[in-house]
């Protein structure tokens, strides 16, 4: 049995508590962005694209053994870092867990501004799409 969604969120919050200033925090996000596996360019299709005004996000999802797995990418590295965090939280859980999860970690690590509609980096729509996919596969 893997960790539940909230355990992962708490783990991330703890991780971010170590950073003393914004530079360290963003360095960590950029690192995560770099480590996120690059997705096959062929997967970057129009239907997987979330076109933010500032950066673009591609999101793909599939169901395996009753669990949802997400892969995603972005053209901006900070957005990729954020994408990587969201995948870490949601990927590998059941549609029911994802659909009912409350995403509190972003606020707690002080990155809420990245999810504001005005930032328009595509992340807000990405979360919505992650949830929608889960809801569509509820058993």
């Amino acid at each position: 049995m893997g960790k539940c969604i909230n355990d992962i969120q708490d783990e991330i919050i703890e991780e971010f508590e170590l950073f003393e200033d914004w530079m360290d925090k963003y360095e960590h996000i950029v690192e995560m962005g770099k480590k996120l596996p690059v997705i096959d360019p062929a997967m970057k299709t129009e239907d997987r694209l979330i076109d933010g005004c500032q950066s673009q996000v591609w999101l793909a999802a599939h169901l395996s053994d009753g669990k949802v797995f997400y892969t995603a990418d972005s053209d901006a590295i900070i957005t990729r870092g954020m994408v990587s965090l969201l995948i870490r939280v949601f990927s590998g859980h059941t549609p029911d867990e994802i659909a009912n999860a409350e995403l509190y970690m972003v606020d707690r690590i002080g990155l809420t501004s990245h999810l504001s509609p005005t930032r328009s980096n595509g992340l807000l729509s990405m979360i919505k799409r992650m949830k929608t996919y889960a809801k569509a596969h509820l058993t």
């Binding site: 914004w22 963003y26 950029v30 500032q54 950066s55 901006a76 900070i78 957005t79 980096n121």
Partner: peptide, 11 residues
Amino acid sequence: HPYDIGVLLDK
């Protein structure tokens, strides 16, 4: 990416 630069300049 301009977005990355913009975020870090804002900080």
